[in-house]
Nucleic acid binder design. Structure first.
Lengths: 277, 277
DNA sequence: TGAATAGTGTCTGTGAGACAATATTAT
DNA sequence: ATAATATTGTCTCACAGACACTATTCA
């Protein structure tokens, strides 16, 4: 068949001439949760947390998984991710970043499904509405070694762990090939998705301002440092930390008192959209 | 309908209950091409280059685009990318990195198509077979400012330019939102895909070893430095450059003579898979 | 010999890691 | 007074930018 114009071609185009497949969008919703306060002097413990959803249907009935869903024909993967985020947490206008497209042929037992995943870092305290019944925040305890990542999930009622192996790809210092070593409780390839997300989040923390997505308007540098420490999984030295974030925050004239110690100055985020590069 | 087991559910699953769509895989094949040698003493000029394919069919008939194609139901996007790479360049076992999944609803005039793009950096001189007739290497002259990226493509016969606008996303220092400002010659949203790829490549250059994908086994540090300079689009100071790559290369006892100047030692890639992090 | 690249030495400033010292509060 | 965090000072070391200097070849 010969066409004489783009218009004519498009009028006659048969969209069924290639195999089609299903595409889903999964969302990693990270946050840092307040834990217990051991005594009046101490700061709250903080925990790295992720939002999971219980599957009440096959496949992977009764397992936990990332919020996500099929994308519609007239919707982008990122709008789908935003829709899911809104449905599960009622949060809007959150910075969502595309993480990766996972597409192993057998990652879903039903049929070929490829999934584009998105990440968000949110402030749990800004969630005004109740979570849906099947959703739950899990604290994550991440233990990372050279060869594997061990994540212990705990939501207060239920606790389980997954182990994901890492293999460094040749020519790379940053990107690992992940494989599931142990997983009894998460659906699909979500252990790998979560491991990738955590790894990316750690990176982003260093050279972007995403943390402030999950900070309240006013915060102390101690609180901010705790968030960094919990996500990075390591302790930071105070002076070093202060130097690093100095340019991203602005001192206010408010202070936070109440702990049995010197009051701390409240800071707020200072967007640094000048002097780029 | 109630099921009693995962198996039973899967046996009865109707995969048509969600809308499906077409997925393609596009590949950015970058290389650095040798240019002219002005005189016997000077080194060859080098040019940053990308492989493009001429569309001889609608849509976008006669425009240039990235090599790519529909993925099959039993194939991953990365195998599709590898297949395309092999078809167009006869190269195998090349490090391919997933770049991004582009999925604007109207990015393809025919129908909804989402595209997962992959990047490769190859050594043009290792291409043993002839390129297919509709493929051609284009030198790219990339001029980047704070607000836009201007790329001039030139394959010897044909020359055109595209301009892509960049907008810095809040909370980010690295990720831009791209938009097409000027494009008469590239199909689809490929100006944006290419701009993203170049930006990612520049980053990768700094903290991975991908360059060595496109270096011959033995090379001089001068040649390696030229490659860096061409991709990064700026000149580097010799001592600084040597310090940076010192740990990645290994001196050999070979030298390269012939230029009207001091011979240079040939180095080879030293994989550094110990001491990670 | 001179043009051109190869390769090294070194000064300086910046910035991170480490540790010490001081400040301030509620009980 | 004490325990706890807040905040700052400073020393050292590593390293990048900058520039200068030496080495070596071939038409």
């Amino acid at each position: 068949m010969e066409y004489n114009s783009e218009e004519e071609f498009l009028r006659n185009y048969d969209s069924s001439c290639f195999e089609k497949l299903s595409v889903t969008s999964d969302v990693l919703i990270f946050s840092v949760a307040d834990g217990v306060q051991e005594n009046y002097r101490k700061l709250n413990e903080k925990h790295f947390a992720i939002l999971l959803v219980k599957r009440y249907d096959y496949p992977f009935k009764d397992k936990w998984c990332l919020p996500g869903g099929f994308i519609r024909i007239d919707e982008t993967t990122s709008s789908a991710a935003k829709r899911v985020l809104k449905d599960e947490t009622n949060l809007e206008d959150i910075y969502l970043e595309q993480l990766y497209t996972f597409d192993e042929v057998n990652r879903d037992p039903r049929m070929r499904i490829i999934s584009t995943s998105y990440m968000a870092l949110v402030d749990k305290n800004k969630l005004h509405n109740k979570l849906s019944d099947n959703a739950s925040w899990f604290n994550m305890n991440v233990i990372e070694s050279d060869e594997s990542i061990n994540i212990v999930f705990d939501n207060g009622n239920e606790s389980f762990s997954v182990v994901v192996g890492k293999t460094l790809r040749e020519f790379t210092t940053d990107r690992y090939e992940y494989s599931v070593i142990k997983n009894d409780s998460l659906a699909f390839d979500h252990p790998i998705v979560i491991a990738s997300g955590i790894s990316r989040l750690k990176n982003k923390l260093e050279y972007t301002d995403i943390v402030f997505n999950m900070m309240p308007e006013y915060f102390t540098l101690g609180e901010l440092q705790q968030v960094y420490e919990v996500i990075l999984g390591k302790e930071l030295l105070d002076p070093a930390f202060r130097r690093i974030i100095a340019s991203k925050v602005e001192k206010t004239n408010k202070v936070k008192t109440g702990g049995g110690h010197r009051p701390s100055v409240l800071f707020k985020y200072k967007s640094n959209n000048k002097k780029k590069l």
